[in-house]
């Protein structure tokens, strides 16, 4: 249940302009032993990542100020090892394609179940373990 208990806890960044998504995910992943930061403003979120990079970034796609694809581009630039999971209420295949070519780890349509996001994050964590 507790992930990364042997080493540094994984750092998780959640960006969604609807506060409830961040609140809920924060609650869940804190319980699982992650260090979680939740933001509703993507610009501030990316600024936070510049200060202290994250292992995993979960971001909404359509947001004011900066969209999820731009978030993807920026956090990958800060730390190419960061795994980015994009969540969105507007699941469109062309966006998905763009996201995948930008190096997105996974793409989850909203609304989603807890175990779907948990599963994606656990896969991202084990994927990172493979980085060596």
């Amino acid at each position: 249940m507790v992930v990364g208990s042997n080493s540094e806890p994984r750092r998780l960044l959640i960006i969604d302009d609807e506060a409830i998504v961040g609140k809920r995910l924060n609650q869940i992943f804190t319980k699982m032993g992650y260090v979680v930061e939740a933001h509703i403003d993507p610009v501030q979120a990316v600024a936070a990542a510049e200060q202290h990079p994250f292992d995993i970034v979960v971001t909404d796609l359509k947001m004011q100020g900066m969209d999820g694809l731009e978030v993807l581009r920026r956090v990958k630039k800060i730390n190419p090892r960061t795994r980015v999971i994009i969540i969105t209420g507007y699941a469109e295949m062309d966006t998905a394609d763009a996201a995948f070519s930008g190096g997105v780890f996974d793409f989850i349509p909203k609304p989603f179940r807890l175990d779907e996001i948990k599963d994606a994050i656990l896969r991202a964590v084990s994927d990172m373990a493979g980085d060596g």
Binding site: I20, G89, K110, P111, F112, R113, L114
Partner: peptide
């Protein structure tokens, strides 16, 4: 029931 994470657009 809390199992879904949703927002207003949903």
């Amino acid at each position: 029931g809390g199992e879904y994470i949703y927002d207003r657009s949903f």
